[in-house]
Amino acid sequence: MSQSVIAANNLVKHFAKRQSLVDRLRNKEVFNVPAIDGVNLELKKGETLGLVGESGCGKSTLGRTLVGLYTASQGSIELSGKEVGEARTLEERRTVQMVFQDPFSSLNPRMTVGEVLREALLFHSLATKENVDEKSKELLTLVGLPHDALKSYPRQFSGGQRQRIGIARALALQPKILIADEVVSALDVSVQASVVNLLMDLKRDLGLTMLFISHNIAVVRQVSDRIAVMYLGRIVEVGPTEQVFNNPSHPYTKLLLSSVPKMASGSQISSAPAGELQSIKSALVGCRFRSRCPVAVDACASIDPSLTLVEGTHQAACLLVK
């Protein structure tokens, strides 16, 4: 059995809601929005875990907390079995790298591609001043960009090419774990495929472990070995991709999968009758999904289900899963 390279233990991240002056004078209780709320997750060496869920469910927050952009409110993160402290060492920072959604705002418009890569390589002492250009060129070759890109600014590239620059920047630090946060969401279908293929090739060739965050279920199905479904800060279902797709066990996963528009002829989109979350606060007691759940029973209002085994390593957090 391969070991876990990154693990989250009971990870919690709250965002404090801004209080108005009136609320503060009234001494009103502060309500912290739990963006992620008790997430346990483990990534084994070389696997790709697809993380899906709707906007605001906390999937990006989870990615950003794992990479260290946010400090966790509670819980811990382990890298290769070793817990990371509040201030990560340089080595720990290098190990986990991230590629962002928006290829337009995640690159400094005033830095050439060469400067972007050089900064990362030199800061982490992965290259010397003498061989930094050579290393940068290697990285560009790796992501399929021409060498003369070094002297160009991000604005001179298309969305797909910028995303490749973002990938090169992340790979410059020779990370073990790559967190890809909605990397293809801003791209057209025709470009999306080439970026996804590139990521998969790199993952295989460099032995990377990847957390692939996306709301695009069709793409996640193509790239992931395992899939985790998030709802309101919790993982509600996790398991091998094919098992989750063929036998979705949590009602939310079922809703999500049936909502995806299909390419098959004669397909008729189905949708749950009711359903958008009204208030986060009221959902925090009992099962969080119950107000939208078509099969909720009385017990769902009081019992907060934890992940239980469905089959093999496939788990779902629903009282009705036996």
């Binding site: 279908v189 495929a193 080439s194 069709a218 193509q222």
Partner: peptide, 23 residues
């Protein structure tokens, strides 16, 4: 033809997406 092949199918995993070169 290329667009249809490049679109990932939620019903089937092909593991390698067809891509259209260029822009």
């Amino acid at each position: 033809y290329s667009l249809l092949k490049a679109a990932p199918d939620p019903d089937e995993a092909v593991h390698r997406l067809f891509s259209i070169s260029g822009e």
